[in-house]
Design a protein around this nucleic acid. Structure first.
Length: 163
DNA sequence: GCCAACGTTGGC
DNA sequence: GCCAACGTTGGC
């Protein structure tokens, strides 16, 4: 669904690389982002449109930070793991008739040469408003403002030149 | 492994 | 509708 204009929206999605890393995404191709069980994160995913761009963030590892870029390959649809009793993500209040949880598919755009650490993002005064940096933020899916997207890509993204 | 911060649950 | 208790997130 494309609405007012053709500009992509920008997002950030967190994953623990032990569970699902940017290399896993590269290997698997378009992959479902299942298991989100937070309403705010779900609502953000339901606002995603085909082609929207995503910072793929590695959390709970060192260094935690942005590992590369992905894009939305399928818009929101019901997360079937929510009604699978054998799934770790099972929610008895969700059913095929009344799905409570949704997911999108995402696809790798580029893996960066190095992870851009959270500590670097925190040092940049132009990024001080980022949700990611706010104290206590625990969202696993969040919007990124266009100026933040540009700033990170033009000034902070690790270069890919061989040494 | 610690623990601050947060979201959710459920008794009242 | 309040809020204490609980479970989870995620940087450090």
């Amino acid at each position: 669904m494309q609405t007012e204009n053709n500009m992509p929206n920008y997002w950030l999605m967190k994953s623990e690389p032990d569970a699902f890393s940017i290399d896993d995404l590269a290997q698997q191709g378009p992959s479902p982002w299942d298991g989100v069980r937070n309403y705010q994160a779900r609502n953000f995913m339901q606002n995603m449109q085909m082609g929207d761009l995503i910072f793929f963030y590695h959390s709970s590892c060192k260094p935690a930070g942005i590992a590369g870029v992905a894009k939305v390959a399928r818009e929101a649809y019901p997360d079937h793991t929510s009604w699978d009793p054998t799934s770790h993500y099972y929610d008895p209040k969700s059913s095929p008739d009344h799905p409570r949880w949704f997911m999108v598919d995402i696809e790798l755009v580029e893996k960066w040469s190095n992870v851009l650490p959270l500590s670097t993002l925190k040092q940049d005064p132009e990024l001080s408003d980022m949700l990611l940096i706010k104290k206590g933020n625990r969202l696993s899916v969040m919007p990124i403002k266009p100026n933040e997207w540009q700033r990170i890509n033009t000034h902070l993204k690790p270069n890919n030149k061989p040494r």
